[in-house]
Nucleic acid binder design. Structure first.
Length: 807
RNA sequence: GCCGGGGUGGCGAAACGGUAGACGCGGCGGACUUAAAAUCCGCUGUCCCGUCAGGGACGUGUGGGUUCGACUCCCACCCCCGGCACCA
């Protein structure tokens, strides 16, 4: 009997599938389109690691299943190859990123083919290819033309080690996401996309899109909508007034001081001359601080010498500057209510400022507070609003202020505009020309792409300029509008822009005159099934939604949400740590391809635990899955050698076939691959013990196995004379009638303890079941001397005799 | 601190409020073998009683609760993982 030789079989089918193009698809002619998308990876030099393999296998299984269900499954793949990652690595290796990336991509493609994915390679994209980034630039221009992109001076996060600006999301705990250096602040001219104009819609649509709840929650928090009051207090003896936002208008009578962020423009204008030196000193110091310092150091601040007046009660309150107030949120200024806000309370303690209670804490008897009371309650010391409960008072106060025009109900978001500019080399050039006369001018669309020049010296300059700024042949140009000499924008785009639209590109890769074809887009999008890691919950996924929404509003897309269904897979970790190059714990699939084969690796990774949970990778147990596949192999060899004509499938065997079909089908639909594989194992264990095998069973088994172990399933399918290819053969249909059990095991409990298990006919009525239960000797023994006061009957499941406690 | 997700045998894990531990790893015993590997068969949550047959108690992070019945629902708490974090 031939042994299972995974190397030979996998090589054989890899070649044949590729030659026949069975995973390619007629994107124009498809009748039942199903767009199955996996998050494209950054093609690192190390190649695919086990975490990628885990993620992609789960997507591929779903795609294979849907294809067998009769859908025209389009499963593309690409490379998110721009960015600091490659650039830093290229610098270290002293290779040009262009060379490096080309090699890496070839390597990735090879590994994905080895893994046995059903990818339509003719639609591959590479974000660093001018044919791709031409359209990234086109998207930039559309946003620019519609007023959604603008350049403005902004305080930015600066990583002194990567020598670049980072988006807020790329700053983790005040440290650079990539190199962990501490972040400092700078003020630079930067391009922004106004994602904040879409905050409300981005939030609202979360109510109906079919996404993993985790991701929706993360996005809701990230958008951070809050409602409250916006108003301003005039500054005494000046024309200025300080506008602020608060979610607690009910505490407005408790304001005892105000605070401006150090960067606030009013600081300079209202500071009194005697305080100027101290204030300037403080502001300079605050700007120098790193994000970490700002967070961990104790409350600091300085008095400006100015006073503001609370128009509600005429209170004169001092105006301070303190770095616990952020310029990036709300108006960059606050009304401080120390009695009812912890930060304000701490600050008031620190600088001996008054604390005035205006919301009575429960059981409060008018004494001093030992800490801020931030809960709701009944108002005191608030004039006409005394005695009203917080919520009603807040509404009443807003209403009053709106009536006299001095304040208004306001919604504020935590979400900030998307900072696009990067002062680096390895990215999509921003397609803008700066003209002395005309200002920033869009590069005409017919002149795209603005090609990223090949530059030997691509090292970051350490200034606030991109290396492209010193490439005269690139930077010097003429203004598309007035024809005078002008300079190109030399910053490049954040890589999140590259990945914010790639799913729009895949179906249309054959067109080089448009980013995405209208007809194809209509046919294939929104994406039917998108699976990726939760680490992209708020970055990639939110930006993609924004770009899609904006393109929708411009009339380019009919839908406003790009991903109909999104599921987050779990993260595979290694010995408790995230798998990453920097941790030096990369495990590649290659050794497993060699030792056990792709089929075993795929099935093992999916079997080890829940796909949506992830877990700690260890190859303990991979032998078990390998043994399973070997048993399947041997089983089919035995079937082929079988001489006797097969009889009809016995009823018990038929039942198992249909129960397994049902179980595997349901589980794949819910991405519960681990239990689907367990069901296949149970099935094969049963087949193992049959004296003879029946063709229906063997065929069905192979069909169910196909998504998990595509190579072996194909090989065995051929061996039993199945028509090529198993992967285009229909998924088996469970017959509910046949799947139904005739006899069921019913647990018999006395007072909730199982005392016996009886076999009775499925669907027995209560009377019959109880009678059978009482016949059991064990049950009788336990019931002896007891009085049954109640019986519970759960059909086909259990019987519970409840006895009187006194016996 | 806030928001998610978890905590079940030696290990990875299953389990519509209804027989906890499916499936697999590991371990133990056996068959085959000169022997070993591979393969196959059986056993394998803990404790107690029993020579066997068998029987019993306990058991899903901790403590309460609801229920005939709780891994599952409710309340309080502990621990681990992930994300966010001075957001006014």
């Amino acid at each position: 009997m031939a042994r299972y030789d995974h190397r030979a079989i996998e090589a054989k089918w890899r070649e044949r599938w590729e030659r026949d193009g069975i995973y390619e698809i007629d994107v124009d002619g498809a009748q039942r389109p199903f767009y199955n998308l996996m998050m494209f990876p950054y093609p690192s030099a190390e190649g695919l690691h086990i975490g990628n393999v885990f993620a992609f296998t789960g997507v591929d299984i779903f795609g294979r299943y849907m294809a067998m269900r009769g859908y025209d499954v389009f499963e593309p793949f690409g490379h998110d190859a721009f960015g600091i990652h490659s650039e830093n690595f290229a610098l270290k290796q002293n290779v040009h990123p262009m060379t490096l990336i080309r090699n890496n991509i070839n390597n990735f493609r090879g590994q994905m083919k080895q893994l046995g994915t059903r990818i339509a390679w003719s639609h591959e994209v590479d974000t660093t290819d001018p044919a791709y980034y031409r359209w990234t630039q086109w998207i930039f221009l559309q946003l620019f033309k519609h007023g959604l992109a603008e350049k403005r001076l902004a305080p930015v996060n600066w990583c002194p080690s990567c020598k670049t600006v980072l988006a807020d999301e790329q700053v983790i705990d005040g440290h650079c996401e990539r190199c962990s250096s501490e972040i400092t602040h700078r003020s630079l001219e930067q391009w922004f996309f106004k994602i904040t104009s879409y905050a409300d819609r981005l939030l609202k649509n979360l109510d109906w899109i079919d996404w993993s709840e985790v991701v929706k929650t993360a996005q809701r928090n990230w958008i951070g909508r809050s409602e409250g009051l916006e108003m301003s207090f005039p500054v005494e003896g000046s024309e200025e007034s300080i506008s602020f936002f608060t979610t607690r208008p009910d505490t407005i009578f408790g304001v005892t001081f105000m605070v401006l962020a150090p960067e606030h423009p009013l600081v300079e204008r209202i500071t009194t001359s005697d305080r100027r030196a101290a204030v300037e000193d403080y502001v300079a110091q605050a700007m120098r601080k790193t994000a970490v310092d700002r967070q961990t150091m104790e409350r600091t601040g300085v008095f400006t010498g100015a006073y503001a007046v609370n128009p509600l009660n005429g209170d004169r309150v001092p105006v301070w500057v303190a770095d616990y107030v952020l310029i990036t949120y709300g108006t960059g200024a606050i009304m401080a209510v120390p009695a009812h806000d912890e930060r304000d309370f701490d600050f008031a303690r620190q600088y001996d400022l008054p604390i005035k209670v205006v919301v009575a804490p429960p059981g409060w008897s008018g004494g001093e507070l030992s800490g801020a009371y931030t809960g709701a309650g009944v108002l005191v010391n608030s004039d006409e609003f005394d005695g009203i409960e917080s919520k009603a008072a807040a509404e009443a106060i807003i209403a009053k202020l709106e009536r006299d025009g001095s304040g208004k109900h306001q919604v504020t978001y935590r979400l900030r505009d998307w900072l696009i500019s990067r002062q680096r080399y390895w990215g999509t050039p921003i397609p803008i020309v700066h003209c002395q006369a005309c200002g920033p001018v869009a590069v005409p669309e017919e002149q795209l792409p603005v090609v990223l020049p090949y530059v030997e010296e691509f090292r970051p300059t350490g200034t606030d300029k991109s290396p492209l700024a010193s490439v005269e042949s690139f930077a010097r140009t003429t203004c598309p509008s007035c024809g005078r000499e002008a300079r190109r924008e030399t910053d490049v785009c954040d890589t999140f822009l590259d990945s914010s639209w790639y799913y729009l590109r895949y179906p249309s890769t054959e067109y080089d005159d448009r980013p995405f074809d209208a007809e194809l887009t209509k046919k294939w999008l929104p994406v039917s099934n998108y699976i990726g890691g939760k680490e992209h919950s708020v970055l990639h996924l939110l930006y993609s939604r924004f770009v899609t929404m904006a393109l929708h509003d411009m009339g380019f897309l009919e839908f406003e949400e790009p991903f109909q269904r999104f599921r987050a897979h779990g993260m595979l970790i290694l010995r408790g740590a995230k798998i990453s190059k920097s941790r030096g714990n990369i495990v590649t699939p290659d050794e497993y391809f060699e030792s056990h084969g792709a089929d075993t690796l795929r099935a093992y990774l999916m079997f080890a635990g829940r796909y949506e949970e992830g877990g700690d990778f260890s190859d303990q147990g991979i032998e078990g899955v390998y043994r399973f596949l070997n048993r399947v192999w041997d089983l089919v060899q035995r079937y082929r050698a079988q001489e006797a004509a097969e009889g009809p499938l016995p009823i018990e065997a038929q039942r198992l076939v249909h129960r397994t079909i049902r179980k595997v089908t349901e589980d794949i639909g819910e991405l519960k691959y681990n239990t689907a594989i367990a069901a296949l194992m149970e099935y094969s264990n049963d087949l193992q013990h049959r004296p003879a095998l029946n063709s229906e069973e063997v065929r069905t088994f192979l069909l169910l196995l196909a998504p998990f172990a595509p190579f072996m399933a194909e090989e065995l399918w051929e061996q039993i004379g199945g028509a090529y290819s198993i992967h285009t053969t229909s998924w088996p249909q469970a017959d509910e009638e046949l799947a139904r059990e005739q006899e069921v095991a019913v647990a018999v409990q006395i007072d909730g303890r199982t005392r016996d298990v009886i076999q009775i006919a499925a669907g027995s009525d209560e009377e019959a079941a109880l009678q059978r239960a009482r016949e059991s000797a064990r049950v009788q023994r336990h019931l002896d001397g007891k009085r049954v006061v109640r019986t519970i009957y759960v059909p086909d499941r259990l019987i519970n005799f409840v006895t009187a406690s006194e016996g």
